[in-house]
Each structure stands twice: as structure tokens, then as C-alpha cells.
Design a protein around this nucleic acid. Structure first.
Lengths: 224, 224
DNA sequence: TTTTTTATACCCCAAAGATGCCATTGTACA
DNA sequence: TGTACAATGGCATCTTTGGGGTATAAAAAA
């Protein structure tokens, strides 16, 4: 048994864990690994998630370790179902692949952590502890992708050189104002609205209001 | 000296660290804590980040620990500057507060981790190791906020009962297609496009194309 | 100083859009 | 078997829009 760390931060009550993993040896390995921890109790293991709702209702675990690539029900759907049955249930995704799409689908579905299968056993236990303590453990490569998600917007901030007035009018266009209504709102003639809009279209390289609205929202040109 | 863990995963070369922290005793404590780790080398400590660009150029650290609430330059701006000088530099934000705004500003500016000051020393060292290994350590409360960010969108998904055909046409509207062009694209009469669009407007409760486009993008009705 | 940009305003006109009302076909559901 | 709805098409009408000009006053830049 590992003697690496004896956390005092963990709850004294047992953490009920259910494992979903279609690879038999791996599933048993995980189970054995978790048994080495005095606060963890594996209350169920499955090689598919086809009746995950029933499983949850019967076993009411505190934490679920979910292989994302299983035959039958998709892992990302499974998370959602677990969270619907009991939102407090912690769910850790477990996978070999670093696919961004599944990562973000899982996060949106309510996953609490995302761990790669290549993770070392002691690190794996550490991650489980972390999620129990309210954290959100991610394997390094995965964490990178999450960070990148936030840092992307920096790269593309095209400047269309719109004047303040033009931005203002673009905002009204987004709201569905007609040329006439824009004139009324800003106390200018309709022809002036038209003139401004013409300039906006030229600067955005579009030729109709719908494209302008789409571009405005895409690049957040109108702060709504 | 702590003997808790001797990771083999850490690089053998020294990690050059710079600390920004305006609280003198705390800054010294952090420095002492880092000294207990054989791979960490504190190459500079500052009580303000006013010349952080100069500091970076002179000390070229691998990792920066940045107090987010310092007098003078704001922590979120400081991250951006560090990343501009040398993007590979790892930056860990260090703060007492769990404010969401600063968290997301830091993430967008390029932070690699976000640690609360109430973190226990051994955990703190563990987090530093994690970021060096390519991870993204977050204190539990912070990690929650990041997860919540992804899980928010689930709450508001209004259903406008658009048919497949209508969604398809709405997508073309977003792209700026005219009624005629839509007809051409889908091999239907222009009057039929018109008819569908009329239904779309009714269902979305709008009365012009720009509003429809705005609503479509806002609720991601058209998967682009 | 002169030039450029910005905001304002007006004219014209053809094309596109919005909305009224109409009808036919096929499919799904009760 | 009838009702509801989706998808198709047509016609008429009036409004809105987009693009082409021209022009003026103020402000900003050269």
C-alpha cells in the first residue's frame, strides 16, 4: 500500500465510487488502485454505460469515473445523464485521446475533471482526491487545451476602423432598427443613417444588413 | 526540508522563478518554500510589477509567480506583458480573492494557473510542479468557476420549434443570401424561400432579417 | 495653411424585402 | 378518415434597402 500522502483535508466518510470502463483488466486495475486509499469505496463497476441512470439511482455514488470511449452510450451523454439524476455527483472523464471536441462536450455536459489514461497511478489517486476537494483536475495536455480556449480571442481582433457613430448605428442595426427608426433614435435624417450604413458596409466588406449583423456579433463589434 | 515527494518527472535543469508579491513577509516565505525544492531557483523577487518587462528581459525566468493585487500595475496587465516578452514563460496568478472577473481576465491574458493564497505550502509546491509539467493548476474554488463557465450555456436553450428546412434557410440568411439566392441554392422558388422566412420570423417573433440573424447567432440556431 | 475625415443632409431609382391572401401535395397523428 | 402541419408555389402591394450621386460644416491631421 502506498504511504505517499495521508491528507487530512479529505472527508472522514467514505467516498462511494462507480467505475465505467470497457477494458476488463484496466477496470480491475483502477478498482485495486482505489482500494489502496482508505477513503475510497468502489460500490460498482461496469463495462458499459447503457443503464447509467438506473445505476446511479441504485448506487447513488459520490463520484463516477467514466471512460469516454465505450461501446454503446457515448461518454459525453453519460455525464449529462449522471448530472441530471443527481447534480452533486462528481464525474471524472477517463480517456486515451486528447480530442478537443469530446473535451469541451464533456465540460459543457458537467464533467468535473478530465484525466488521460496514461496518467501514473499515484497521480491518478491525487487527481481523485483533488476532485473530491472541489477541484477540477486535468491532465497536462488537457489543461493546455482549456487554457488555449480562453486565450484564443486575443489572436483575432480585426479592426474595421469604424467610427464611434458607425459603431452606434451598427448596434441599432443589430437590434433590427430600420433606417427611419435609426434616424428617429439619433435625431438625424434617414438619409444620414443610410449614408453611415453605406460606410459601415464598405468597411466591413459586406453588402447587406444581415451580413453586417452577423459580422458585428461574430467580432463583438456591438457591445451588448 | 520536506521529504514529501521526489518527482522524476521534473526536468533536471533548474527552473528559474521570479516572485512578485507586495507583502514582504509573504514574499520571503514563498522564496524560502521554493528553496526547499531542488529544481527551483528563485532568480528575483519584487514588491511591484511596474517594470515587469525590464525584469523579464534581464532575468528571463521560466516561471513567474504573480500577486494579482499589487499597488501600481494591475496583475492582469502584467501577465499579458510577460507573455508578450516571452510567450513560453509560465505565469501563476496568486491572490486572496476569488473574483471571477480577474480570473477570466487573467486566463484570457495568458495565465497558466491560478492559486489562492490560503493554499497549504506543500500543495503550493505541488501546483508549481504541475504547471512546470504543462498542467494548469487551479485552487478548488477557482476550478469551480472555470467549470461553471462551460456549464452555463446549458441553462438557456430556448426552442423556437424551427423545422429542419427553416434552420437551413436561417443559416443561409445569416450568410447574407438573398431570397432569390436561397431559392437557387435549395432549388426552390423564391416565393417558397419567402414563405419559409415568413414562418421563421413568426416563430422567432421578429419582423426583419437582421433581427432574425441576431437571434440566430445569439442562440446558436445556425451551427456555423 | 491645406487636406482629409466625419457627420450631416438631400436626390434618384431599381432591387430586395415584408406581409397580405391564395392553393396543392404529402406525411403524420388521432 | 379527417385534422394538422410541413413544404412547395403563386400573386399583389407597399416599404425598405442598397448603391449611385452631390454638398456643406466642423474637426482633425498633415
Amino acid at each position: 500500500m502506498n504511504k505517499q500522502q495521508q491528507k487530512t483535508t479529505l472527508l472522514l466518510i467514505m467516498i462511494r465510487i462507480v467505475i465505467y470502463e470497457d477494458n476488463d483488466p484496466l477496470r480491475k486495475s483502477i478498482q485495486l488502485l482505489l482500494l489502496t486509499h482508505t477513503s475510497f469505496e468502489v460500490v460498482g463497476t461496469f463495462d458499459h454505460a447503457n443503464d447509467i441512470v438506473g445505476d446511479m439511482k441504485q448506487l447513488y455514488p459520490d463520484l463516477v469515473i467514466l471512460d469516454i470511449d465505450m461501446p454503446g452510450r457515448k461518454g459525453t451523454d453519460a455525464v449529462r445523464l449522471v448530472k441530471e439524476v443527481r447534480p452533486e455527483t462528481l464525474v471524472i472523464m477517463h480517456t486515451v485521446f486528447e480530442e478537443e471536441e469530446k473535451l469541451f462536450m464533456s465540460l459543457c455536459a458537467g464533467a468535473n475533471g478530465y484525466i488521460l489514461k496514461k496518467t501514473a497511478p499515484e497521480k491518478f489517486l491525487q487527481y481523485i482526491e483533488e476532485v473530491v476537494e472541489g477541484g477540477a483536475p486535468f491532465s497536462p495536455g488537457i489543461a493546455q487545451k482549456v487554457l488555449k480556449y480562453f486565450q484564443q480571442p486575443i489572436t483575432d481582433v480585426p479592426d474595421f476602423h469604424l467610427t464611434e457613430r458607425e459603431k452606434q448605428i451598427l448596434q441599432l442595426l443589430v437590434k433590427g432598427y430600420t433606417y427611419k427608426a435609426i434616424g428617429g433614435e439619433l435625431n438625424i435624417a434617414m438619409d444620414t443613417s443610410r449614408k453611415h450604413i453605406r460606410h459601415i458596409y464598405e468597411k466591413l466588406h459586406v453588402n447587406c444588413g444581415r451580413q453586417a449583423v452577423a459580422l458585428a456579433l461574430k467580432h463583438k463589434l456591438s457591445d451588448h
